Simulated scan of single mutants.
Amino acid sequence: MEVFAEVLKKVDNPEHRERMEELLTWVSEEFPSLSPVVKWNQPMFTDRDTYIIGFSASKKHVAVAPEQIGISHFLEEIEEAGFDHTKELVRFKWNSPFDYDLLKKMIEFNIVDKADCTTFWRK
């Protein structure tokens, strides 16, 4: 988690920092083939230099960003779970359990869907 140390220091609330570290550690352990990187001051994971998923901490939630196609692909599950979302991200509230099952599906979907992608973002 050394790559995320500076980003984690910027999360003011110690409980939020701990949960964010737990989340990033979970992704690293669940998907050891992904590369942890920081771009635009945000922790994210890539596969062959292609964006897979990114995170950002705010006061009330952690934003999970699987790109727009990741949101649209899982929109029904996101809405059934009651998560607030935009076209680009899902908000996991700090005071609720993180939905690791949904997160795992999003990551697996992006790894497969972007297997032949040669750019950082989808075109």
Rank of each mutant, 00 (worst) to 15 (best):
Tyr51Ser: 01
Thr118Gly: 14
Ser56Met: 07
Ala5Ile: 09
Asp116Val: 00
Met1Gly: 06
Arg48Ala: 10
Met44Lys: 08
Ala115Met: 14
Leu24Pro: 01
Phe120Asn: 14
Leu89His: 05
Ala57Cys: 08
Phe109Leu: 12
Glu88Val: 10
Lys10Ala: 12
Ile52Glu: 05
Ala65Cys: 04
Ala81Val: 10
Val11Met: 00
Leu8Cys: 00
Lys10Ile: 06
Leu34Thr: 03
Leu24Gly: 03
Glu21Lys: 06
Pro43Val: 00
Arg19Asp: 04
Ile69Asp: 15
Asn95Lys: 15
Tyr51Cys: 01
Trp26Leu: 04
Glu77Val: 06
Trp94Lys: 01
Val62Trp: 02
Ile78Ser: 11
Met106Leu: 10
Met1Trp: 07
Leu23Tyr: 04
Pro36Cys: 05
Phe109Asp: 05
Lys60Leu: 08
Ser28Val: 02
Thr25Asn: 05
Phe74Cys: 13
Tyr100Ser: 01
Arg122Val: 12
Pro66Asp: 08
Asp47Gln: 14
Asn41Ala: 13
Pro43Trp: 04
Lys123Arg: 14
Trp40Ser: 10
Glu30His: 09
Lys104Ile: 06
Ser28Trp: 04
Pro66Gln: 01
Asp101Thr: 13
Glu22Thr: 09
Val62Met: 08
Glu80Met: 14
Glu79Met: 13
His85Ile: 10
Phe83Pro: 01
Ser35Met: 12
Lys39His: 08
Thr86Asn: 05
Ala57Lys: 07
Leu103Cys: 09
Ser72Leu: 10
Phe92Arg: 05
Ala65Leu: 08
Lys87Ile: 12
Lys123Val: 12
Lys105Met: 08
Asn13Pro: 09
Met20Cys: 07
Asp113Trp: 07
Ala63Cys: 08
His73Arg: 15
Val37Leu: 10
Met106Tyr: 03
Leu103Trp: 04
Glu76His: 12
Asp84Ile: 12
Leu89Gln: 11
Ile111His: 02
Phe83Asp: 09
Glu29Asp: 14
Tyr51Phe: 11
Val7Gly: 01
Phe74Glu: 00
Lys123Cys: 04
Asn41Lys: 15
His85Asn: 15
His16Ile: 00
Arg122Thr: 08
Val27His: 01
Ser58Met: 07
Arg17His: 10
Leu24Cys: 03
Met106Ala: 08
Val64Ser: 02
Met44Glu: 13
Glu29Val: 10
Lys59Val: 12
Glu6Met: 03
Lys104Leu: 03
Trp121Asn: 14
His61Phe: 08
Ala115Asn: 09
Ala63Gly: 15
Lys10Pro: 00
Lys104Cys: 05
Asp113Leu: 10
Arg19Thr: 02
Phe45Arg: 05
Cys117Met: 11
Asp12Gln: 12
Lys10Leu: 11
Lys39Ile: 00
Lys39Thr: 05
Ile78Cys: 11
Pro36Thr: 06
Thr46Gly: 09
His16Cys: 04
Thr46Ile: 02
Ser56Trp: 02
Val90Pro: 00
Lys105Ala: 13
Arg17Tyr: 09
Ala63Gln: 09
Leu103Asp: 07
Lys105Pro: 09
Met20Trp: 05
Gln42Leu: 11
Cys117Val: 13
Val3His: 02
Phe74Lys: 06
Ile107Tyr: 01
Glu21Thr: 01
Asn41Tyr: 11
Arg122Leu: 15
Leu75Trp: 13
Ser56Pro: 07
Pro14His: 01
Thr119Asn: 13
